[in-house]
Design a protein around this nucleic acid. Structure first.
Length: 479
RNA sequence: GGCCCGUUAGCUCAACUGGUAGAGCAGCGGACUCUUAAUCCGCAGGCUGAAGGUUCGAGUCCUUCACGGGUCACCA
């Protein structure tokens, strides 16, 4: 540093001119023959981060990394001049530089820039992690994601895939005539899901507010308002435990379509994920945790209760006994309170069924008790027109034929409020404003939420949600 | 939040049942004009996550705490 200052070299210049990205050069010329390159005289100015330096006396090789590939550069004292060559020894691994020169191939056939001038772009003040093993420490990888991204280029691919997925999803819905909307992140009554919210406070209004647990109730107000197809991709916040499948803030895609129901949503979901698989991965078979997930349509559908019976191996009438079912749930999950029949079924479902469903499966017709925003089934008032999509053992999506009868909705909210009084902190509050909106008429509507992070996990073959979220929540480290 | 495991140099890892904390890479100095985990010679690098305890003696055993991972609980 001091030496560089003595030489009056600017350590953090404002601007750099480049002619190509490193990727353009490696893509464009890797297959060119050495003779071709010599004839064409491909002259380039490239910028990137120095990842390795191999000094050979009066010649030096280095690798410079761009965002998508790296390229070798070759420095020779004869070429850059004695003074510049000597100054180059002040460059450290990790520094940003730009190099200008012709592209050629070395004896070993590696595409290389024959440097005749170079410029410092930014100094790296810390040594980079070890070049061979890279950064392995998971805590450091999440805390200092930038280092993870520098050292483990495959991690960059995960986030490129994530970005590509989201832009494909937008395209998919836009082409179907959906409009993308943004609804409030701060709610005075948290709703739309069974979960605990984060609480905050608005000073000027003197108002308690909650970070949203779901956009659902606002999106349906928009259907009431006359939009027929809406979607939103944004963050939800749930004040719950952290695990390899849960981050307190996570990205949810929700979409609602008037004049449709949960059957239409199943078709749409199949189409969307099948599309994504073909365009992002180029296959119908996704490799996930050593297994192949086939997204070939149509996908399996199984009724919630049939799934319970099938995977638990218990007799079908076993689940008709309400108190017996609650008892079974408490033996399966002793720490868990099973306050209701519906909740108990949910527990048994999680225990027996979910992990076994690797191939995409629509589990349909959930207990109405745990589906307060879904229409009841015509043939069976205890069940709701609701499905969950399970893939790779994870719940990926949740959808229903939206309950539109305001008085029925009020009743359901009241039941929820009752459960809440009994200690179920996830239960809904009565949202009278939402009921009022329904009183103006919600047409038959299908709605769905898809957990984007988990879908990325499957597409990127990652076991932990933290691997697909750039900055997962960690406890701050005390110095 | 419960249980289990982990935390040693900037990074990746060693150190036997308690007996003087080491290596590779990175860094610094030197040699080397087609190397690629370059090579060769030399140097430096540490309150072993924190605080207590047991012991003549603790990286190692015990207790508490911090952070992380796994798992269960809550949930998507």
């Amino acid at each position: 540093m001091e030496k560089l200052a003595q030489e009056k070299i600017e350590l953090f210049p404002h601007k750099v001119k480049t002619t190509h990205t490193i990727f353009e050069v490696t893509e464009g010329f890797s297959s060119s023959s050495p003779e071709d390159l010599e004839k064409k005289k491909v002259r380039v100015i490239l910028a990137g981060r120095v990842m390795s330096i191999r000094g050979m006396g009066r010649a030096t090789f280095l690798h410079i990394a761009g965002s998508r590939s790296r390229i070798q550069a070759y420095l020779k004292e004869d070429k850059v001049g004695k003074k510049n060559y000597k100054l180059f020894s002040l460059i450290d691994i990790g520094d940003f530089v730009s190099v200008e020169g012709d592209v050629f191939k070395t004896r070993t056939g590696e595409l290389t820039v024959f440097v005749d001038s170079y410029t410092f772009l930014a100094k790296c003040l810390h040594p980079l992690p070890e070049k061979w093993h890279g950064l392995q420490n998971v805590e450091l990888r999440y805390r200092k994601r930038y280092l993870d991204l520098i050292m483990n280029p495959a991690e960059r691919d995960v986030f490129r895939l994530r970005s590509a997925m989201i832009s494909h999803i937008r395209k998919f819905f836009d082409e179907k005539g959906y409009i993308e909307v943004e609804t409030p992140m701060m709610h005075s009554i948290p709703g739309g899901a069974l979960a605990r919210p984060f609480k905050t406070f608005h000073n000027a209004l003197g108002l308690d507010l909650y970070l949203r647990i779901a956009p659902e109730l606002y999106l349906k107000r928009l259907i009431v308002g006359g939009f027929e197809k809406v979607y939103e991709i944004n963050r939800n916040f749930r004040n719950e435990g952290i695990s390899s499948e849960h981050n307190p803030e996570f990205t949810m895609l929700e979409f609602y379509e008037a004049y449709s129901d949960y059957n239409d949503m199943m078709k749409l979901t199949e189409e969307l994920i099948h599309d994504l698989s073909l365009s992002l991965l180029g296959t119908e078979k996704i490799a996930f945790m050593g297994k192949k997930i086939s997204v070939k349509r149509p996908w399996k559908r199984i009724k919630f209760k049939e799934a319970l019976v099938y995977y638990s191996g218990l007799a079908p009438d076993r689940f008709d006994d309400r108190s017996g079912t609650i008892e079974l749930a408490s033996t399966l999950a002793p720490d868990k309170k099973a306050p209701s029949y519906g909740k108990a079924l949910d527990i048994i479902f999680d225990k027996y069924v979910k992990q076994n469903l690797v191939q995409p499966t629509f589990v349909i017709d959930f207990p109405k008790e745990v589906s307060p925003l879904a229409k009841a089934l015509k043939e069976n008032p205890d069940e709701a027109e609701r499905f969950e999509l399970v893939m790779g053992g994870m719940e990926i999506a949740n959808a229903f034929s939206e309950l539109s009868d305001p008085s029925e909705q009020r009743k359901r909210f009241e039941q929820q409020a009752e459960a809440r009084k009994k200690g179920d902190e996830d239960a809904h509050l009565v949202d009278t404003d939402y009921i009022h909106a329904l009183e103006y008429g919600l047409p038959p509507t299908g709605g769905e939420g898809i957990g984007i992070d988990r879908l990325v996990m499957i597409f990127a073959n990652r076991k932990s949600i933290r691997d697909v979220i750039l900055f997962p929540l960690l406890r701050p480290k005390k110095e």
